[in-house]
Write a protein that binds this DNA or RNA. Sequence first.
DNA 1: TCGTATATATTAAACGTTTTACCTCCTTGC
DNA 2: GCAAGGAGGTAAAACGTTTAATATATACGA
Lengths: 346, 346
Amino acid sequence: MKNKRLTIKSMADEFGVSTATISHALNGLPGVSEELRSRIVDYANKNHYIPNTFGRGLKGIALKVIGIVISDISNANYYCQINGIESVSDRFGYNNILCSSDDNWQTEAAKIKVLIEKNVDGMIIVPTEYPDKIAEKELYQTLEASGIPFVLMNRLVYGRNYDLVKTDNLIGSEMAINYLFQKNHRRIIHLTTDQNTSTVNDRAAGFLAAMEKRTGHAIEQDVYRCERPTVDLAYEKMIQILGERQDFTAVFAYNDTVAFGAIKAILSIGKSVPDDISVIGYDDNVFSPISQVPLTTVRQDNYYIGEKAAEILLDKIEGRRKKTIKIIINPEGVIERSSVKKLDIV
Amino acid sequence: MKNKRLTIKSMADEFGVSTATISHALNGLPGVSEELRSRIVDYANKNHYIPNTFGRGLKGIALKVIGIVISDISNANYYCQINGIESVSDRFGYNNILCSSDDNWQTEAAKIKVLIEKNVDGMIIVPTEYPDKIAEKELYQTLEASGIPFVLMNRLVYGRNYDLVKTDNLIGSEMAINYLFQKNHRRIIHLTTDQNTSTVNDRAAGFLAAMEKRTGHAIEQDVYRCERPTVDLAYEKMIQILGERQDFTAVFAYNDTVAFGAIKAILSIGKSVPDDISVIGYDDNVFSPISQVPLTTVRQDNYYIGEKAAEILLDKIEGRRKKTIKIIINPEGVIERSSVKKLDIV
DNA sequence: TCGTATATATTAAACGTTTTACCTCCTTGC
DNA sequence: GCAAGGAGGTAAAACGTTTAATATATACGA
C-alpha cells in the first residue's frame, strides 16, 4: 500500500502525452501550449509532485547542495559559522547538509564518503586529526578523485595545499598574552588539549612565541594538555596542575570551554578568579558573558569566516575561481569581562 | 580538466568485460572468477571508485540515509539527542544528514523538501510552529505523498496523528513547582516564550495546572513571554517584569537559556539569586552547572529520546512497524544546584 | 560419447529524468 | 498556390547502476 510517488511518466500517461511534454511544461520550456501547461502544473502541484533526484542527477544536473563537515556540533561557535555559510548559500540558491565528525577521523572519513556518494556540489570541511596518516592520504585522494570542490575551515591539513579560511591563531594568542602583560601578569600557563589540530598547535605556538618575545625565554613546561577540550577534562587537569604548582598568576586557556573547566577547578579549591588567579579564554562562547565568572576572552568573527568559506566554495563550484586560496583572518581582539585582574606592579 | 569520476562502464572498457561483470565483482555476487574479481576490486580501490548514487538510487536501492530536521542547532540539548539518534542509526548502518530549521517554518519546509528530493529513507523532525496553517497542511501532505516515513521529536503537530517521541512537559512543570513548594515558595511566576510549540504550551499549562492544584487558583497573568528563548530577550523581559512587580519569590523558566537571562536581569538590578529571588530552569544544559549561579533545573534524558526516535523510525523504514506510536517519556526530575533557596515558612 | 551440471560471462531491460532531433499542422506572406 | 516559419508536440537516446535471462565453455558422471 506504499504510496507510489508521482512520476513524469505516470503524468504522461494520465494526460495522454509524452514525457517530454510533461518535462517541458514543468520546467517552463517552450513547446507546450499555455492551456496544457497550466493543466499539467496544476495537477503536479495538487498531487505534490517532487522530481526524482536520481533521474535528474543522472543527467548531470547540479542539485545545488553543499555538504558541511564540522568537528563538533556541540561547540556553540560553529553555530555562527554555519549561519554565515547559510547566508551565502541561500543567496546562491544552495542547500546545506550538515554532518558532525565528532572529532573522530573514522567518522569524518565515513561522512565525507557519504557526501561524495550523494554527489553534493561542494563541501566545507573542518578537518580532524588523523593518527593514521595512510588513511588520511587515502581520504584526500578519494576526495580529489571525486572532483568535488571543497574548502577547509578553521584548521589546515598539514602538508596539503587546499583552499582554506581560518583565523590567525598565532596572533590571537599574542593578543591574549599582550593583554595579560598589560595587566601586569608575568607568570602565565597555557592549558590546552592533546589534539594535533592546527588550531591547537597554533595557539600553543603563539603562546610560546609571545612569551619568548616578552620575557626572552619561553618555557615548554608551561603548556599543559588535557585529553579533549571539555569542561570536565579541563577541570581534572587543572586540579592536577594546582596540586603541583601555584606559582602562576594567570591561565591562558585553549578555548572558553577549557577556561570554564579551569575556573571551576580554581574555585573548587577555595581560590578566587580573578583575585587569586586570572583566566583568559578564546572564542567568545555565547555562555561566556554569563558563566560563573564572566569570561575575558579572545574573539573572532565566526560569521565572517563561514561567509568567506562559502563564497570561495561557490566560486569554485561555479567555475569563477581555479587557483587555490588561503584566507587568514585576524581575530577581533580581547573582550574584557571579569576573569582577569590587574595586578599591582611587583 | 575536471576529473571524470570512475564509472562501472569505464572499468568495463578497461578490463574488456561487461558492466554486469564489474558490478558482480564489486558487489561480491557470484558469476566472476576469483582471479578477475580481485583484479577488479584492486583496480577500483586504487582508483578510489565510489559508486554513483543516482544510478543506484534509480534502481530503488536503499541508500540508508536518514534526515534530521531540528529547530535550532545552537541549542546544546539537541546535541545529546543527535548523539542518541546516531548511536542507533550507526548500529543499523545508516547515515544521518542534519538540517537546522532555525525555528523558521519556511526554512523547515524548504529543508524537508530537499530531503524528500534527495530520497532519504526516513526523517526525524522537530516541528516548528506554522503561522500559516495552509502552508503547514501543504507540507505534511507533501511529506505523506512522498511515502517517506518520519517521526516527530520533542514537539507534536496539533491536529495530526504522527509517530512521536517526547517527554511529558506537563509532569516536568509539576516537578518544578512541587520542588519550589517544598522549598516553601508560594508566589511563583513562569517566564516562557511566544512560540506556539507544544513544548512551550505544555510547560505553561503544566505550570498553571500545578499552581491550581497547590493553591486552588492559577493566575494566567503570572505567565510572561519573551519573543524567543534567548538569553538577551529573556533578560529584557525579566527587567521589564522586575520594573512592574517584585512580589514573587521564584521564577520557573521555560528552559535554561531563559533562566540564564532571568538570572542576569535579577543580578543586574542588584538583587541576589537565590537569596532574593530563586530561579529554576528546564533542560539541564551543559552550561547550567557552571553558570553565574549554578542552575537548579528539570532534567530529561535527551540521549534516550534520540535513541527512541531513531528506533521507531528504523522500525518503520524496515517495515517492522505499521501502526503509529507515541512515546511520552517522564522527565528524570529536578537537579539541585544553587539557584533555589529554601524559604522560612511564613 | 552424450547429456547435464557448473563456472563464468554477456545481453538487455529497467529505474526517472532531460534533451536533441525530428515530425506535423497551421499561418502568413508573396 | 506554395515556400517559409512557427507552434505544439513526439521519439528516442542518454546518464550509471542492477539484475533477470541467456549464452558459452568446461568438467563430470554414466
